[in-house]
Amino acid sequence: MLPDFSNPADWLPWAFASLMGLSILIYVILDGFDLGVGILFPLATPGEKDLMIGSIGPFWDANETWLVLAVGLLLVAFPTAHGVILTALYLPVFVMLVGLILRGVAFEFRAKARDQYRNLWNGAFFAGSLITALAQGFMLGLYIMGLEQTAATYAFATLAAVFLAVGYSFIGAVWLIHKAEGQLQTKAIGWSRGGLWGVILGIGAISLSTPFVSNRIFDKWFGFPEMLYLLPLPVISAALIAWLFVMLRRMPFPQDRFSWLPFAVSTGLFALAYLGMAYSFYPYVVPDQLTIYDAASAPESLFIILVGACVVVPVIISYTILAYFIFRGKATELRYE
């Protein structure tokens, strides 16, 4: 899996694929919980809705920026793949953008527009979050199916769309367990318990179907000795699911201890599932068509971006942590004062 570090044409595409993979993972977890909170919106009372918005308000914009970075890295590091993937996913990308537009502006409008429009913007916030999650899941499904567009791949993509939306609402619910208290927290625990079943089904369905899409992926997983090395991946995932299952049954703990733990464990679970997928597709950026080496930009252009990224990304991560630290603790209704 490791490239030849003495040859820039070999390690630069690898470094960029890793960086892009990392930003997609961060995006899925961070904007995943934002979008999940949006999907859970109709289940809450008006007062709870304000608290839910308060739990994501200071972060959503920065969370969404990881998507811009991911698609930006795809664009700048693998321009050919960017064109192939995005033209193949023309319609779902468009639907996702509509969802992101609705979700993003609804945040602001619901707080500022006249009261009689408030429900309209609440609806737009929910619809935007749900549409975005479904579109992203649909794209994920088509991507797993090698971007082929047949009735069967659409059916699979539809299934993936539902599972990703459920997955996002699950991670949104565990985020709320940490950020909410009282009635809303109790509700969030209930939502998480239900959502966990969807996550089990979703991870199961995608893990089982991916190897059967192509012989190459099948051999990567079920060859010998790869199977032995990879065994920890499903085993740890199963252990994390079991842990979540037991923990969510017993929450909330006295004095609200470990309210952050379900979110942390879920993050681990999502990361493992994502790692498994990344392993399946490496070194392809367009499944079974283009490798990261075929699609990469000129090494000198990649190098100048990497220099900047090495300086700036640690800074970005540190001020992101600072923002989460400043807005730590239980969510309150957002105020500009």
């Binding site: 920026t65 811009v68 890295l73 252009s301 900047g308 970005i316």
Partner: peptide, 23 residues
């Protein structure tokens, strides 16, 4: 590519993170 990447790295994250603190 590099110009757009520098925009994301030096501008987008800066605005997006600090706007939460600003607001």
């Amino acid at each position: 590519g590099p110009l757009l990447a520098y925009e994301v790295l030096t501008a987008f994250f800066l605005e997006a993170v600090f706007i939460g603190i600003m607001l």
